[in-house]
Amino acid sequence: MSLIVRDMAIARGGVPVLQGVSFDVQPGQALVLRGPNGIGKTTLLRCVAGLQPVLSGQVNTDADRLAYVAHADGIKSVLSVAENLSFWAQIFGRSDISAALEAYQLTALADRPAGLLSAGQKRRLGLARLLVTGRQLWIMDEPTVSLDGEAVHMFASAIRMHLSGGGSALLATHIDLGLAEAHVLDLAPYRATTMAGDAFDEAFL
């Protein structure tokens, strides 16, 4: 499955932020979105994930084959690491969580309540969630926040493995992951300049 975005315009809080964005992500590819704060990276990812409608343009993807990681990890602090992870595995119709625990070195922490984890460990748990979904396209919003150097390596190798297995990834990040194969898309040139496509507000002006 490939993700194809054509001439997309998006708005945040009713104000258009990006327009004319086009890109492809084929199986085995990763695309890194870059751009200054407030350019609309998070909004773009939410639109691709189907959480938010686009103002105009096309997003061609299969909603049943993508997994999404937001700023918030959806971790319940009173459940243990393993419980948190196996809940998401079950939601996605799977059961095996050991490989995901392994990949982010969480095996030793499996029985600890998630509330006692450090911020970096929580983030690793949030990323391990991607591995248990079994989805092909990963959409990640600032996945490396609060990760240390070693954890970033774990993350990069997890992505590399995902890509080599025919998966694909779309992520917004500021740091260099050391992923040579990843393409980079700078969003700065796509900053919206007109009230693109908002038929309603248009009618008032």
């Binding site: 049943d64 937001a70 918030a72 990890d73 959806g74 319940k76 939601i91 119709g93």
Partner: peptide
Amino acid sequence: DWEDGSLDLLAVSPL
């Protein structure tokens, strides 16, 4: 579930 982001994640889940 809204505060910790679970609802967003559930919305893109198969459920």
